[in-house]
């Protein structure tokens, strides 16, 4: 369903002293209905890869093929219409927009109250307290993050990408979230990519992909990759895999 061919994203150094590859010649394919976890050290290029797939960043070389169609030059809007969605690592806030209207905008229609509530419940938010609150600076980072995840739940997606959904979330909500992702993992037709450092999320994966230095360092079924994270990939495994809640 998704194929990245020789994908590169290069940026010029600010001082004009050449350029830096954030993503370099990356090849990857993700099949329909798969639940994939991408992990790897901070700064390895995971968020950049997600933005390239969503169309937020333009690759400097290579191709993105989605369901047989070359979408490399397609706008964010058009990719969204094809059913691709991305939950930001650091979601923006919106002055004057309520949680309910944000969810409705995500869904593309006015959502009834009970439907909004069910999405919020799935991310561990007590819905009645939140529906009419504005998504502004009065919400905590963890709350904004969960609302962001809920906006993806409200959409009918073929390919959903969640960028470190666990960040800033308390233990109780995290358990809720894992259950929610578990139910997403059961879907046979839609694919899910979660960028995560959390063992409990990795345990849900059909496949784990390790990205470091802008390249695929390793990939395979979770039973094969997960043990290696703790040993072969050395220090970052310890740093990231069991990073505390609320990081």
């Amino acid at each position: 369903m998704l194929e990245l061919k020789n994908l590169s994203f290069k940026v010029d150094n600010e001082d004009g002293s050449g350029s830096l590859h954030i993503i370099e010649g990356l090849n990857l394919s993700i099949e329909e209905g798969k639940f994939v976890v991408i992990t790897g050290p901070n700064g390895g290029g995971k968020s950049t890869l997600a933005k390239l797939i969503m169309g937020i960043e333009q690759p400097t070389a290579g191709q993105i093929i989605y369901n047989g169609q070359d979408i490399t030059n397609m706008s964010v809007t058009d990719r969204a219409k094809l059913g691709i969605g991305y939950a930001f690592q650091q979601p923006p806030r919106f002055k004057g927009l309520t949680v309910r209207s944000l969810l409705s905008l995500a869904a593309g229609k006015d959502l009834p109250e009970d439907e909004c509530c069910s999405y919020l419940t799935r991310v561990g938010l007590c819905s009645m307290d939140y529906l009419n609150r504005e998504v502004d600076s009065s919400l905590s980072g963890g709350e904004v993050k969960r609302i962001e995840i809920a906006t993806l739940m409200a959409r009918d997606l073929n390919l959903a990408i969640y960028d470190e959904p666990e960040a800033g979330i308390d233990l109780w909500s995290f358990t809720m979230l894992v259950d929610t992702f578990k139910s997403l993992a059961k879907n046979e037709t839609n694919s899910v990519i979660i960028i995560s450092h959390q063992e409990r999320i990795m345990q849900l994966a059909d496949e784990i992909i390790v990205i470091a230095d802008g390249k695929v360092m390793s990939r395979g079924p979770k039973d094969e990759i997960f043990p290696k994270l703790l040993t072969e990939f050395g220090s970052f495994g310890r740093d990231c895999t069991f990073r505390g809640e609320g990081a």
């Binding site: 937020i56 964010v76 809007t77 991305y86 930001f88 650091q90 923006p92 919106f94 004057g96 905008l105």
Partner: peptide, 23 residues
């Protein structure tokens, strides 16, 4: 980021601007 977020919902840039301004 606000504009891009709304575009990832399938809105055009103009539609996204309008929503942000209204809010």
């Amino acid at each position: 980021d606000q504009l891009i977020k709304l575009e990832t919902f399938g809105m055009t840039e103009e539609e996204a601007e309008e929503v942000i301004i209204q809010g």
